[in-house]
Design a protein around this nucleic acid. Structure first.
Lengths: 180, 180
DNA sequence: TCAAGTTGTTTGGCATGCCAAACAACTCTA
DNA sequence: TAGAGTTGTTTGGCATGCCAAACAACTTGA
């Protein structure tokens, strides 16, 4: 089994990801981004942003010109674009496939956007593209899933049924591990 | 827009969730759980576990008998079961629906298992149950998706195509926000 | 029985990431 | 041009969550 603490072994932390995305968004929306703008965007103090950006500048992800306008390096922009794309793809999947309300989908994806691996995100993108392609299998599936989902009352999670499902999956993956 | 820092406003932290799950797993597997067992299970020191469990005991999630054997309160067990169920459901979806390899699915789900809301997890469970029900729409969908996914080379994330998709979704959700 | 090993706790340290408050440097405006 | 406001930085503080090391309390084996 792998080390469960990988949650903080990501290329960028949750905090850093949000700083990069904030800069990217501000650049698109206003054409510039300063420490104060980032702080306002993230709802934290200028001091905190100042300290965090010092690290991101040192890592070559964030740039600053002589007038203290912030920018993103090639790498920094790549990371920001990746996080933003993951966020949108996950939003799309949660809403279009699972029928999660937008508000909740926003909360959930915000927490996990920067944690999903590129490969999983790529696969999720493919699924979402297919889902939105209008292919008859996709339409039929969403339709049938919607009807299927209406069964059973919304008890507290996890329901007995879900726990049985979880046990089943656990058993299957344990089986596959034995064979190593 | 909601506060992006909700990532740490969860009922239990990533760390706490893993401690609870470890106890639950040890109880099932060996019938008992002590501080040392939890430490070994999580790959951290006894000292760290001791400190963390002090907090969980104070919060009434973890119990301890006179022989220093650990247990879970009703609430603690509910949380542990919820996290474990979410983990398995996400594993199932990533592997069965998206075709993510088990090893990677394990890493990804480990990072997000405790962050997904109950409602989203419930909906995900429904989707997975349907997917595994053998319904013809489910089978046809997975089949068609697999073929669809084979298109395009695995470039670096996010591909141009995915970025276009992301922009589209962003535009749609922004539209729906205007109307509020 | 007594030395050796195991167990749980405490302590001080480190890293991340936030805050408030004090500061210096700038830009307006009256 | 002086006062007021804005900006970015620094400082000390707090919370989480990990470590190593030292410790006391136990079990266990020769």
């Amino acid at each position: 089994m792998h080390d469960w603490r990988e949650y903080d072994q990501n290329p960028v932390s949750h905090s850093a990801a949000h700083h990069l995305v904030a800069i990217a968004e501000l650049l698109v929306e206003f054409g510039y981004a300063r420490v104060s703008d980032v702080a306002r965007n993230l709802g934290i103090t200028r001091g905190s942003v100042s300290v965090t950006l010092k690290g991101l500048k040192a890592r070559g992800l964030v740039t600053e010109d002589e007038r203290r306008f912030l920018g993103l390096s090639e790498e920094g922009e790549r990371i920001a674009r990746g996080v933003m794309a993951k966020k949108q793809v996950l939003m799309g999947l949660l809403m279009d496939l699972l029928g999660v309300p937008e508000e909740l989908a926003d909360q959930d994806t915000c927490k996990i956007e920067h944690l999903v691996s590129d490969e999983t995100a790529e696969r999720a993108s493919r699924a979402l593209l297919f889902l939105r392609s209008g292919a008859k299998e996709a339409v039929a599936f969403v339709d049938a899933l919607q009807k299927f989902g209406r069964q059973g009352a919304p008890e507290s999670f996890p329901s007995k049924e879900v726990e049985a499902l979880a046990r089943e999956i656990a058993r299957e993956t344990e089986d596959s591990e034995e064979g190593k």
